[in-house]
């Protein structure tokens, strides 16, 4: 059995190593499939559904589906783009995302996706839920207004023994991500910074580090999210 498989994304012929997830395989072929709950080096969860693609006629999450020989993948087609947009819009109205006052603005992946999709206003009514800000930890602030429950921090931030420093608390609509009271005490400066970097939105902030990058030099000020991947393709052609 060959080590490589051939497949198509929106008609473009692609090749990748067998067993690679569709998002990663697409990336190697210079095609960007938007993701939000996915993070390099962390086991994919398939939670946010923004990476939804149509594989051989069926909707699948590209971050959890491995490529296979002869797959026909649709990504940038009208109904799937609309689906991705509506997920971003729902996330915006579900929490309290006041971009102008957010320390992560300009470096926020949720915001960057909204920019990429050219979302001027969510088409759903704002919920304005009452959420709390937990600043009790000496190193980090956990702002529940902005949390999108992607679980990236829970999956990525672990102590030396592999235990998650962040955890889900409560269930259903009341669920929130909190710092484990015991493990959180040992949070190093390095891990605190990593947890802020892992968070796609401004829900985890290292204290006294807000607004450190000036407007104009932030990650998504000039380039749309995913354009780095698309540039690779341009140079290849």
């Amino acid at each position: 059995m060959s080590q490589f498989v051939k497949f198509t994304i929106d008609g473009t012929e692609c090749m990748a190593a067998r067993g690679q997830y569709i998002v990663d395989a697409a990336k190697e072929n210079g095609i960007y499939i938007p993701t939000l709950c996915n993070y390099p080096g962390v086991k994919p969860k398939g939670g946010c559904r923004i990476c939804t693609v149509r594989v051989n006629g069926r909707l699948m999450t590209a971050c959890t589906t491995p490529v296979a020989e002869g797959m026909t993948i649709e990504s940038e087609v009208h109904d799937i783009v609309e689906l991705r947009k509506s997920i971003v819009e729902l996330l915006f109205v579900e929490g309290n995302h006041f971009c102008p006052g957010c320390e992560k603005s300009g470096n926020c992946e949720l915001q960057a996706l909204a920019y990429r999709f050219r979302i001027m206003v969510p088409r759903f009514p704002f919920q304005f839920p009452l959420r709390r800000i937990d600043a009790s930890h000496p190193k980090i602030i956990k702002d529940q207004n902005r949390c999108i429950l992607c679980k990236r921090c829970i999956r990525a931030i672990r102590d030396e023994e592999g235990r998650s420093v962040f955890a889900y608390r409560r269930r259903s609509s009341r669920v929130e991500v909190v710092v484990d009271p015991k493990l959180g005490k040992q949070l190093t400066d390095e891990l605190a910074q990593k947890s802020m970097d892992v968070c796609p939105v401004g829900s985890i902030l290292v204290k006294e580090k807000g607004f450190i990058t000036p407007i104009g030099s932030r990650k998504y000020d000039h380039e749309a999210i995913g354009s780095d991947i698309e540039h690779i393709r341009m140079t290849k052609i």
């Binding site: 971009c99 102008p100 603005s105 300009g106 909204a114 920019y115 050219r118 000020d221 000039h222």
Partner: peptide
């Protein structure tokens, strides 16, 4: 026609 830089939320 809107350039990328022109639409920002902050």
């Amino acid at each position: 026609q809107l350039p990328y830089e022109v639409v920002k939320f902050d």
